[in-house]
Design a protein around this nucleic acid. Structure first.
Lengths: 216, 216, 216, 216
DNA sequence: TATGAATGAGCCTTCATTCAT
DNA sequence: AATGAATGAAGGCTCATTCAT
């Protein structure tokens, strides 16, 4: 379903402090949390799956919730990373003349990321309503950082007459809904259905582009 | 936040078998489940909040999960009710000449329902990944019943050249994404933000309509 | 396995005060107690099996233990009845000249009784160690009444040189052991084995008779 | 009443894996089970009596029933051990020329064992009807192992004309009944009575020997 | 008399966490 | 650093018993 080593590389590469055991714990926790939910997963189960002693978990993570946060936090960080590049604006200007192209690039790139980190993403969306820490993390990152950049971006394309003149938050909402709607259906609701991914992504982009076309 | 009596009237009106205590239990369970999640809510907590003995819960609901299902199941049923009307097709034909009008009516009607049953809906989306019973219920109802009707409907408007020729499932996905995207943002993610509901709904409908406009 | 009506007739015939419901409760209780033990049987289970409401049980029997006693007590009484006939001595004198004949008659008669009341007997032997009330009942009846009569009886046959001169309690023990040993094996340990009852009973009597033959 | 250390030595000597706490748990469980019965004994009570936390019990025994089995199983094994010696036959041949001597040795030896392990034996006979696991254990050991050996043995003495020609199962039944009859009366029914053990054992053996004397 | 909803104590078991080794 | 035995609070659930109807 997903590549364990890949996760480690992509998400936890920086944190070189991670013991071999620590990695095993994280991987086990991700698997269990995403399958049964945080509250329904026991630390003993994680320990068993990770092949370590129960106590070892608590040597590295003071509490069970610490373990949760230590999984979700870097995922959020990595997910929004591309949007936080300082001079995103400039870069965009050069690379993606059309909103459509930007959209396509973003979707493909971030969808790839989500696909590769699906279990973690699942944990994130499942647990966020119940943990103020996560909620705060989310708002701080998404709202304060990503949303800000995104707004500039949208204004950029609006100024060039490529997308309709609506408040940035509305546009963000509509775009994000369409993308996440696809990802949800594809990977969470009906993962075993027979999807023609390429076609669906194209339809989604077309849908968004037409939906946001300026009323000349 | 939400009107308790309203819930009882709307969702559990038919079930006249419900004791006064049973109602209290359900209301307490809805509150707790939606706030802390099913797994993190204890039956003793529900009992205390409902003002009944813990044993009383188990007299009416064989297990804790039974209680969950007895909350979520009628919600699903009521939610999809309007879509299962036998002669939906005919009705539509007469009432909503334009897909746009149908869409608007549907959104407003079902959005109202969700708004009134938000806690229950929250429970539903939170718990569905972890409970095969709920998953089955959902698939049976939504996929088999609603989706079928919806497909006919879409074909109806496609035949009249009002919406683009795409597979029904793609259209359903795009429409549903846009609507739920609004509801999520509005009621779950940022409920305390300052929303101009009327404008947002209109924007959402416009977005959908343009997004699905036929490429003549 | 055993005849319910028979039980009612034989054991509870005198107690005409018994309601129809009461009889059903007793029968249900006997079945459950003997199958799962007193402690592991719930009153709700008995109620369900008897087809009455839970409360009904407690209307007739103040406590669960009352119910137990009301089952075991009459069984003990009926079981020892033949030994308590006032002029047992006289009767014996006339009817059974030989100890052997007395033994045979007694075994056959009481074995028949036990066979017909096996579930109750099972309850009795299972529960007696844990309930002082039953223990008292047992001692009072068996020790004080039966044993006394039996002693006279044994003396009677000893005087006639038919059985060995041992203390009555030793003889009682040996005889009872042999008989109960048969009944245990026959009805409790290996009920499904292929028993030649007639032969086994005869062997048992022979064994006892030779075992108790006087050392002339 | 019985020597705790003795039990540990005799029954659990081999199992060196037993923690100090585990031993305490076993001892406490034996006491409570034998006094009140398995179903009527709570694990919290055992924990308290053993001076450990309730959770500790379940660290060592997955369930309450596991604890029961872990007490009864070794008792059965140890009890039948002497009968399963590979060359029992040979040994007998040399040591016990007369059935009487064999009987005496066996009774004294096994009676001593039972006396020392009375609580466990009590648990065994009380719980065996309600637990298929125990029943299976019993049948496997007693029926398949002990009975087989015993049959050979009986044939041995029958061939030498020392005991009557009856089916082995009948002889086993009669002998076992007499012995257990004594043990029951002695240790379970009337333990506080004034017993002349030596005399009673002798009477029991005499009774058996005469009872089984060949009809010349 | 009979009911069965209601109770709350108590049951077996699991849990996150601690700590001596 | 790592272990895993030990903890005791808390969990879901069952129970014998009560009482208003």
């Amino acid at each position: 379903m997903y590549n364990r080593d890949f996760i480690m590389e992509e998400l936890f590469e920086d944190e070189e402090g991670l013991t071999e055991k620590q990695k095993k714990i994280i991987i086990a926790a991700i698997e269990s949390f995403s399958e049964k939910g945080y509250a329904a997963t026991s630390t003993s189960e994680i320990a068993k799956k990770a092949g370590v002693a129960e106590g070892t978990i608590f040597r590295h993570y003071k509490t069970k919730k610490d373990l949760l946060v230590s999984i979700v936090a870097p995922m959020i960080a990595k997910f929004i990373a591309p949007f936080v590049i300082k001079d995103l604006y400039k870069v965009l200007d050069q690379q993606f003349e059309r909103f459509e192209d930007f959209l396509k690039a973003m979707i493909e790139n971030r969808a790839e990321f989500l696909k590769n980190n699906l279990p973690m993403f699942k944990i994130f969306i499942q647990e966020i309503p119940f943990h103020p820490e996560l909620k705060a993390l989310f708002k701080e990152h998404i709202v304060n950082k990503v949303y800000e950049r995104f707004s500039e971006l949208i204004k950029h394309y609006q100024d060039r007459g490529q997308i309709i003149e609506l408040p940035a938050y509305s546009i963000v909402r509509l775009v994000v809904s369409s993308i996440f709607g696809y990802l949800f259906g594809r990977y969470l609701l009906f993962p075993e259905a027979d999807w023609d991914d390429e076609a669906e992504i194209e339809r989604t982009i077309d849908f968004i582009m037409h939906g946001l076309k300026p009323k000349n």
